[in-house]
């Protein structure tokens, strides 16, 4: 591990790295201890989310039907349900990648779509971990994690490098800054995607099917990473998953979505004890066996 770290530092100080990202410290103060980030890069505080009467159709396909949901600040909230029921579409509305046909989403009581139309800036930061990880192949792990910081220029370069190291350590990938994304396993890609999201110090983080395409052992490791984050960082987390074990372990509350509608909301215990036939069937098929066999 020490060798990896040393190699990482050696590469970090290469001429090309300096040309691309600037010189990390001054001649007299190579560590540049005083380098601080701007006020825009504050600690995360978690946000309240309120979704009211949300509807979305793609052509004839009515994907989201009158969605009403409340998520409290600092909560880890999971949206569960079978594939193709609109979970990811709902998530994309919260990060404004999709616009609703009708309905509103309030974050800290600000109507996000009304603000988008007015062009007013948001006073919270959000970030999303995509199902495919969506890492940028042309960039190294460190460059992926530091992309937002470098683009927004909220911190000096020396501080950015420290943040990259810290965020990678948080997800158990210390010293991997110089690896290319093609050298990573599926689980490592997910963790880099989480580190990239955390580098923004987000108030809201969304995970779209974080355990998709991962084996059970790697899923457990990822769950531990998210649980550790929950202890260390104060933010609102929304997880979309059809992996019930994962969702039950991590969530403070869950909502079950079926055929584009929220059919039940509650704590893991309340969901487990629900009499709703769709929930019972979903729980049975995903935890015990094949329905009707």
């Amino acid at each position: 591990m020490a060798t990896e770290k040393e190699n990482g530092r050696k590469k970090e100080n290469s001429v090309m790295d300096k040309v691309l990202h600037g010189f990390p410290g001054s001649f007299f103060d190579p560590e540049d201890q005083g380098a601080e980030c701007s006020a825009d890069y504050s600690e995360p505080h978690g946000v309240d989310i309120r979704i009211v009467g949300l509807n979305k159709s793609f052509g004839e396909n009515h994907v989201l039907k009158d969605i009403n949901l409340e998520i409290k600040a600092g909560e880890t909230f999971s949206i569960i349900g079978p594939s193709g029921t609109g979970k990811s579409v709902l998530l994309k509305h919260i990060v404004k990648l999709e616009a609703p046909d009708s309905g509103r989403i309030y974050i800290d009581e600000h109507d996000i779509f009304a603000e988008m139309k007015r062009g007013t800036s948001r006073d919270y930061r959000y970030s999303m971990v995509f199902q495919t990880s969506a890492l940028f192949n042309s960039l190294s792990v460190g460059e992926n994690v530091g992309l937002w910081l470098r683009e927004k220029r909220v911190c000096p370069e020396v501080r950015i490098r420290r943040i990259i190291r810290d965020k990678l350590r948080l997800v158990g990938l210390q010293g991997k800054e110089d690896l290319m994304t093609s050298e990573l396993s599926g689980g490592m890609k997910k963790r880099v995607a989480i580190a990239r999201s955390l580098a923004m110090n987000p108030d809201l983080i969304l995970y779209d099917e974080p355990t998709a395409e991962l084996d059970p052992v790697t899923s457990d490791e990822l769950a531990r990473v998210i649980m550790d984050l929950k202890k260390e960082v104060s933010l609102t987390s929304i997880i979309v998953s059809h992996d019930l074990n994962f969702a039950f372990h991590l969530s403070d509350r869950l909502a079950m979505i079926h055929d584009g509608r929220i059919i039940e909301t509650g704590t893991p215990e309340q969901i487990r004890a629900s009499d709703n036939p769709h929930i019972k069937k979903f729980l049975y098929t995903t935890t015990k066996g094949i329905s009707g066999v």
Binding site: L97, M128, F130, T132, A134, W148, R196
Partner: peptide, 16 residues
């Protein structure tokens, strides 16, 4: 490929 594999969406969520 970036569009298909959600990297363009990732850029948008990173405010880029």
């Amino acid at each position: 490929a970036m569009k298909v594999y959600e990297e363009i969406d990732a850029l948008k969520t990173l405010e880029i």
